[in-house]
Design a protein around this nucleic acid. Structure first.
Lengths: 335, 335
DNA sequence: ATAGCAGGATGAATCGTTTCAAGGGTAGGG
DNA sequence: CCCTACCCTTGAAACGATTCATCCTGCTAT
């Protein structure tokens, strides 16, 4: 159905090798031939077959990216950053959504391996170390995203979540809050546990301050709302005076539960701070304070590390960004 | 580096044909052989090479999806719907982001054609009719998403934007508003112009009501904020008493501009209604009224139409969903 | 006049999988 | 004891692009 190099070669009365040269090394071809072949290509509407090219050189020009949650703008921003950097190197990005499910993650890694992908960027669910090692043995490099590499054996681009957690709670303490609730989970997620560790460290520095953990099963608006409702149902004295949510989606949910039913005032009764500083945070019912991460930059750097590892002789590198506190109304000190 | 069927065949002391049978038609292989081959596969860590398979059967098992804006949750929801339906048929989805730019759109279509993709789902920027016809001539089916097919020559899944626009403005009129501003653009986007047409129709039914158009250059929070600021700068008498924003991102931006500087009250001074009903609408500063579209369902149906067209003899079908009005605080009638 | 050279063009071999016509072996029926 | 049928297995061909050793042609330098 579609034309191949052979058809082009036949029409232009040259060999297939010459057609290939026109495509890949036009300077090696005489002007007359080049024009003739070009004309044939146009006439037949010839389009290269990527599968054949890939088969030939053993590797595709796509990068696989597995994220925890496509609905979280933090990850789509990473994807954008990755995609634009990849495009510069004539690579494209395949986006896979693990939804925090190890089996979905495994499916994507299988798929990417079958595609003989150029490399893999992954924001891992559990500990895919063995799986990634196997990928590497098969010649496919991987870079960890939003998670440092345990043993420095893989490149990684991450943000210091411990520092971020510390920053968030320190800010709450600095603005006079004392009974703080950390909302987030599952605790198995590195992002969650690191942020909690940082939070705990800040609390420890401040005698008299307490930290309560309200677990959730996922980092979604829906789960946040449920957690917020559980706080709202308490008698006022037993409520915390500040909430640190493990990400902005949760924070938005908590806000909905507390404010939209009008009983609890944010920030007067309860201050809220989230994490990620997604676009919507500033537009929330009460504009949300948050911890900002350089999301597009993370994607960009991840692709660069990947390219470096693929071309250079397997050098690995760890990049750790520092997060940044963004203060808005939701943590305004009580009057 | 990676093992091939040949290696497996050699280790299992069978022919490559048998290995292929084990992979694709295990029932045609005797138990003893099957076990031996399986053992060899495991031992070598053999992984099929997708490029070779694709080359063989001329078409990949991926579906290309080109959307206007990955940052708009409406489109990521479509992608989710498409992906889950595709997975059921062992297909995967490649997500491309045109960012409303015809040349980016063209790049993705080129890429997908080179990949000999199973089919293409596209939310088009301009009028890619010729391009899609060419794709079809090359054996690649396409389904239009969020846009009906002009001549019914392609399958499409869309939502009645005219009805949605009518609904939105009708609701504003019903709640007592009269001087309505439509915020949106560029006017070349079908979604925008159809919604405006519906809005105009509603206005026409109501003597005394006026519709002002405030153009934007994109459907983003940022553009919405700019438009909102232009309204805020007017003397109060010249402001509209209601805003219909062409999508929720714009509406959120308008809200930010009007409310977060505290001068204009929503909905008392100005009512706002958006479009898409993205998750964040209910969590906005003032919970946003909106026009809901069944986004995941759109993606799901689009994949089904694509599969039908690929397997059946090129039947095409047009699906048009009706939108739904969702009322929240932002259009509460003034006291 | 001849050897040497360079610029172009050639076409067979290759990548890994699938398919399919053909072959081998066994069992059962005649 | 042979023939048919059936079940497995075989191996070569095909998919389309790229590469590379080889070849051709015309020209220059000696």
């Amino acid at each position: 159905m579609a034309a191949s190099v052979k058809d082009v070669a036949a029409l232009a009365r040259v060999s297939v090798g010459t057609v290939s040269n026109v495509l890949n090394r036009p300077d090696k071809v005489s002007t007359a031939t080049l024009e003739r072949v070009q004309a044939a290509i146009d006439e037949l509407g010839f389009v290269r077959n990527d599968a054949a090219r890939q088969l030939r050189d053993g590797r595709s020009r796509s990068i696989g990216l597995v994220v925890l949650d496509v609905r979280n703008p933090f990850f789509t921003d990473i994807a954008r950053g990755a995609e634009s950097r990849a495009a510069e190197s004539k690579l494209s990005v395949l986006l896979g959504n693990s939804d925090d499910d190890p089996s979905r993650e495994a499916n994507y890694l299988d798929l990417f391996e079958q595609q003989r992908v150029h490399g893999v960027l992954i924001s891992p669910v559990g500990n895919p170390r063995d799986r990634l090692t196997r990928l590497r043995d098969h010649g496919i490099a991987a870079v960890l995203v939003d998670r440092p590499s345990d043993g420095a054996d893989f490149s990684s681009v991450s943000v210091d979540d411990d520092a971020g957690g510390y920053m968030a709670v320190r800010h709450l303490l600095d603005t006079g809050r004392r009974r703080i609730a950390f909302i987030g989970g599952p605790a198995t997620m590195r992002q969650v546990s690191d942020r909690l560790t940082g939070a705990t460290r800040a609390i420890a520095e401040h005698p008299g301050a307490t930290l309560e953990v309200v677990p959730t099963t996922a980092l979604t608006v829906f789960e946040g709302r449920a957690a917020g409702e559980s706080l709202r149902e308490r008698v006022p004295d037993e409520r915390p005076d500040a909430v640190f949510a493990a990400n902005d989606l949760l924070a938005v949910g908590v806000l909905q539960a507390l404010v939209m039913l009008g009983e609890v005032s944010v920030p007067d009764d309860i201050a809220i701070i989230g994490y990620d500083d997604i676009d919507f945070s500033s537009a929330a019912v009460v504009p949300l304070s948050s911890i900002r991460q350089p999301s597009e930059l993370i994607g960009l750097r991840a692709v660069e590390l990947l390219i470096a590892e693929v071309s250079g002789a397997g050098v690995t590198e760890q990049i750790v960004f520092q997060p940044e506190l963004v203060v808005r109304d939701s943590t305004r000190p009580p009057a």
